[in-house]
Amino acid sequence: MTIAPPVVRTAPPAASRGARSVSVSWMAWPALFAFTVFGIVPLFGVLVLSFSSWNGLSPNIPFTGLDSWRSVLNDPDLPHALWVTFLIMALSWLAQTPISILLGVFIASHQRYRNWLAVLYFVPLLLSQAAIAITYKALLDPNFGLGAGLGWGFLQQDWLGESKLAVGVVIFVVSWQWIPFHSLIYQGGIRQIPASMYEAAEIDGAGRVRKFFSITLPQLKYTIITSSTLMVVGSLTFFDLIYVLTAGGPGDATRALAVDMYQRGFKANLMGPASVIAVILVLVGLGLALLLRRLGGRDAAESQLEGA
């Protein structure tokens, strides 16, 4: 046995490496198999189905070329769904980002009571979107909700029955759940800004507001891009919340892409057009992620890791 090690070392290193990778490769197979069947195959599957007119029920899938694409692209509902998606995306970004940064600054300092406040902030993140949607549906009910009970006219509006109000409610509820998450990201970013930068600024006589705009914000550039990417790309997939809260209504006021896809596919049994919407959803998501990555000027793989 004592002779064995030198013998092993005489083998070319590449060969021994190759042998080792063969001996571990099999460990990747179960994960690869599971993800291929339910992730990769469906990704191509949705493209294939977009050329069909499957009704979601019958066992045979008729392929009808570009019919579904033509019908969706000529449908005035598509620009509307895109507009609603964009509106929710932009307004929820506008609502969440400033508050998240302010809260991030607030909880970044190390006082104990602020840590406890942060613990309370995170509770909404633990709830399912279905539970949150149900709660707000009850709370905002014009006849039985909080407003009716308190007799406050302001709270007694038909929140989910009027188009503009319903969009506002969706944005408020999204912010209610997600602001804590983003403020946690900003907290991490703020704590990494070197204290010496602030000290230098103080010596130069900079005030608090000046320091915030000249140091904190520029230093948070990448954090802002990470958080914005998550908000923007994530907003494409808001489904549970909108579905339970408004089901896309009133009318089609909150019928964003993901809800539109569900309604076409699983309510109207038009899987072809629904698959077209799904393909558009993937393309828009990838496009936005790439755009934001370009803005950040960062290595693609790296921000992909963060985009998780």
Binding site: F38, G39, L236, T237, G285, A289
Partner: peptide
């Protein structure tokens, strides 16, 4: 493949998953 998989939203592939 897994890195790319991070970018696939469940909503977008739910129809083929349903078929499978």
């Amino acid at each position: 493949i897994f890195l790319m998989g991070l970018a696939i939203p469940l909503q977008a592939v739910i129809i083929p998953v349903y078929l499978i």
